[in-house]
Design a protein around this nucleic acid. Structure first.
Lengths: 330, 330
DNA sequence: TAAAATATTACAAACGTTTGCGACAAAATT
DNA sequence: AATTTTGTCGCAAACGTTTGTAATATTTTA
């Protein structure tokens, strides 16, 4: 069965294509009576406008692109979820591609976006950073780019991200409030700037406000690494009374070790992490965490995208603030 | 800056549009020398074919639609991840929409798909089932639909799903092997057919092969429900020595209770679940589970989609088999 | 009643491709 | 030398819209 088009409607109604087109969009030029007829027929033949033809004609698509390192990721999928929700409300559809943290994929994805003439892209940089030029190419083509989470330094772009340093500082505050003596702080992949930022913020805060607290710092790239690391530390004579986990990955590893060693939380060990909340709430007691909501970030990113598309350039770096969520682990 | 088009290339090279078009796709009619020239210019002006124009002309898009209840879901995101990977390899891009288990959204999403003339859609039914007619509309328009996970009974469609009954049977086998005396079996939402199927398969198997084993059956819609349920059961005199968790949700709830009660796994309690593996591996010891891989399901779904698009109708219901993964909880 | 204003509809070009067919030359065949 | 084949390339239509402008009919105004 062939799709019904304006032409078909026009023929059946003995009208011109343009009249039909205008009738369907309630154009004032068209009389009420023909509008009725047109709508009735369109309904019964269930006419659906061909998005491609529209986009070709109007040179603007109702599609937004999203590039994430991975879709199966606790943080990103809540981001996507939020963006999708907002997009749908505003008549946009999403095209989601994953880079798998691979530059080649990322470039490929961008090409697909350009070829599909998306009207904007949300991008989370893959960890290899040399490839920012391509994003300029997008801007040249007047395709706004909103970076999220892992953003470039270049301030010619619009960026939204979590208040990374704040997260670490809030965690440090709580640790000090708890009156911790020996702290084990495990951060994420040392190569990522986000790890560095959070680490130095944490370190500085601890230094300034509680220099007597003994802190040891580590990095872990995977939950396995974090688990091994914690096990090793736990076998030492001077055990930590508090552990800070920068990421969900780290927390997962630590928790496995904690369960294996049957350490009592929070009596023997206080735990605090940075997370969107899903993982921390898997345990008993719930782990206290500083919340970084991909959901809110998504909402914010969408607002920025709209601003970019409507008005002129809004080159800003916005951050969504973090808040502490009390579990029972501190 | 305006996008470079075939027309532009043609003008600059003093060639016709058709020649340029053919040159770019290595058509045998075109001489090697002009192919070179065309490619060179296309390269330097970084020409990108306009997907809309192509799709309008060829009446076939390189876009596949995916409808999932929710993107942020351990199972679905691995499905999406797999489909995305396969799609990219085959030159397709994905348009992902979430129904939020809401019929209205689902219909809306389908409309978007039709308007964007996607060349196929992967759909997971939202739990309200009356709306299958729309999918017939898709088929009438020759847009193949591949259902996954939650599929309609109607066998005019192509379906892929997990071997639901098998999963439950495998779990039952393992429970019998363990020589369990008292089993607590907690299934998912009673309203879902998948819960019913798994339950009766489990029940039948236990009846047939180990009638002496004492089993109690429950349903839980959320992890909180499962947690409360387990807590209540654990306070009884006759405690279960084995618990079966049909879903991740259930497992999460049970594990919270288990941790709260400081029950020793597997000595005091054996645990087995059905899962894709993420949640079970969060605990120590790892929870044994029957694997249902969204990933494999995604791969399978894609193959079916391609078959549907190429050849004629392949109306089959395929299932991906399940396998037992040993953790330390049994 | 003629002129002007308004209401309603139609025409046609354009968006950027693809593709069947025809045009023309050069090369090969008779 | 006349004819056929082959190699290159261009013309033009089509995909389904949108939209500026022209055309016609109807009403209002002077």
């Amino acid at each position: 069965m062939t799709n019904t088009t304006l032409k078909l409607l026009a023929q059946q109604l003995q009208l011109s294509i343009s009249t039909v087109s205008r009738a369907l969009k309630d154009h004032p030029d068209i009389s009420a009576s023909t509008k009725e007829k047109v709508n009735a027929l369109a309904q019964s033949l269930d006419y659906e406008p061909n998005a491609y033809a529209i986009q070709l004609r109007t040179q603007s698509s109702k599609i937004l692109g999203v590039i994430v390192p991975a879709i199966s990721n606790l943080f990103y999928d809540s981001f996507i979820s939020a963006v999708e929700e907002e997009s749908r409300k505003n008549g946009y559809a999403l095209m989601i591609l994953q880079s798998s943290n691979n530059t080649e994929n990322e470039l490929n994805n961008l090409k697909i976006f350009r070829q599909n003439r998306v009207s904007g892209v949300f991008a989370c940089l893959s960890t290899s950073i040399e490839n920012i030029e391509v994003y300029h190419k997008m801007n040249e083509r007047e395709i706004p780019v909103v970076f999220f989470d892992i953003v470039p330094k270049d301030n010619r772009f619009t960026k939204v991200r979590m208040a990374d340093e704040r997260c670490a500082v809030i965690a440090a505050e709580k640790i000090i409030q708890r009156n911790a003596k020996r702290v084990l702080a495990i951060f994420g992949d040392e190569g990522l700037s986000i790890s560095q930022k959070r680490k130095s913020a944490f370190q500085n805060f601890m230094q300034s406000y509680s220099p007597k607290t003994h802190c040891t710092y580590f990095h872990a790239k995977s939950s396995k690494e974090a688990e091994d690391l914690f096990l090793k530390q736990a076998s030492k004579v001077q055990k930590a009374d508090t552990v800070f986990c920068m990421t969900d990955e780290v927390l997962i590893g630590v928790m496995k070790a904690v369960q294996a060693l049957e350490i009592k939380v929070p009596h023997e060990l206080g735990i605090i992490s940075i997370s969107n909340g899903f993982i921390p709430n898997l345990y008993h007691p719930h782990i206290s965490y500083v919340e970084t909501s991909g959901f809110e970030l998504g909402k914010l990113a969408f607002v920025q995208m709209m601003a970019n598309m409507k008005g002129g350039k809004t080159l800003t770096e916005l951050t969504v603030d973090a808040k502490f969520v009390e579990g029972g682990s501190m």
